[in-house]
Nucleic acid binder design. Sequence first.
DNA 1: CCATTTCCATAGCGATCACTATATATATTG
DNA 2: CAATATATATAGTGATCGCTATGGAAATGG
Lengths: 203, 203
Amino acid sequence: MEMEKAPRGRPRRLDKEKILEIASVLFWQQGYEATSINELVTAMGITPPSLYAAYSSKEELYLAAIDRYSASYGRQMLSGLALHSCVYEAIRTVLYECVEVFVGGDHPSGCMIATGLVESSNAQGALARKLADLRQQTIKIIADKFKACETQFVEGTDLPALASFFGATIQGMAVQARDVNCPTELHKIAEHSLSVLQASRRF
Amino acid sequence: MEMEKAPRGRPRRLDKEKILEIASVLFWQQGYEATSINELVTAMGITPPSLYAAYSSKEELYLAAIDRYSASYGRQMLSGLALHSCVYEAIRTVLYECVEVFVGGDHPSGCMIATGLVESSNAQGALARKLADLRQQTIKIIADKFKACETQFVEGTDLPALASFFGATIQGMAVQARDVNCPTELHKIAEHSLSVLQASRRF
DNA sequence: CCATTTCCATAGCGATCACTATATATATTG
DNA sequence: CAATATATATAGTGATCGCTATGGAAATGG
């Protein structure tokens, strides 16, 4: 049993997790550059110094929000890869979890990573590169799953290319989730995409 | 023969078309919100009043840039639809023209429309809706082509769904063009996507 | 030449940007 | 009760945002 000793001074009104949760929603909805510190602190019910006591800069806050998103929604979306040994079931689960997240009810639509900082000023080059990296990492994870399931594919299938095709599918679904926000539409896209996988499997 | 009479006062240093061309490149590269008037006029070699003499606001300039993009690159990308009566050849041409534009040499990578204002503040809601509309229009145009080629599909094919699948493919390719900027990668995505169309054709 | 017309450059408008110095309020420890 | 430690709110930093008022420069017509 861990007994939490109350810290010395005046307690925070909001802990870092709560701050991050609110920031994530705003960044998810509006993106990095379009979300101002003013909007953030207003939504949090605090003032700029309190925010900066928790996160030393807007950039750091955004990076933490991305991490949080990866650890929760990102993990959820890719959970199918570890769950299913059948590569088709695995990818199908991934795509359907993506739909679940992209048009989810109590949070913004779309994907923080898939469409994050695709357009940005040169001043945000580092962040933009980080986001591009995360997108490529996702594709790499899918490619690794394909590699691990190599025997399920027809001989000579270009597995990295297939992975980047599903990366494109996910990114396209993320855009359309913003535009129409309809799970049925996205499910149809997912199914068409899955037929590509079906075609390159050996039975 | 139209004889251009020289107008009364001092002539413009830059005509509206030249201004638009430079603005398009910057908006294409950085997006609407991340591109400042200062950057624009500096790139144009003029000053703010000269820019505002040609376009009355940043928003109007952006809309004109989008129009210009639609009329040139957008038209180029969709040219295959009118060129080929075979729906497969038509879509294949579209996707390959998209690659041509998205990783083109003398301009920014990606697509102004496919990834334009996907993330934005509420203040730009009108522009964001306009861009979402343009994306949906593109899908509609593809769907119309499918409808016109109805006899080439197997009975009962969900043509609008197939069109939105290709819309997602194009949008995904636009994101990946920004991230890796490699035509070979995009061509592989296009070919995988085309196999979906191949599968739903009747011969 | 002068008068007229138009564009351009300088400078700056109020608003907002990310961020912070200062001082006060609120908690714990002794 | 101090004394201390921490978080808070007020207010404002210089910089940049989109945009514009003013006045002079550069072309025309007469």
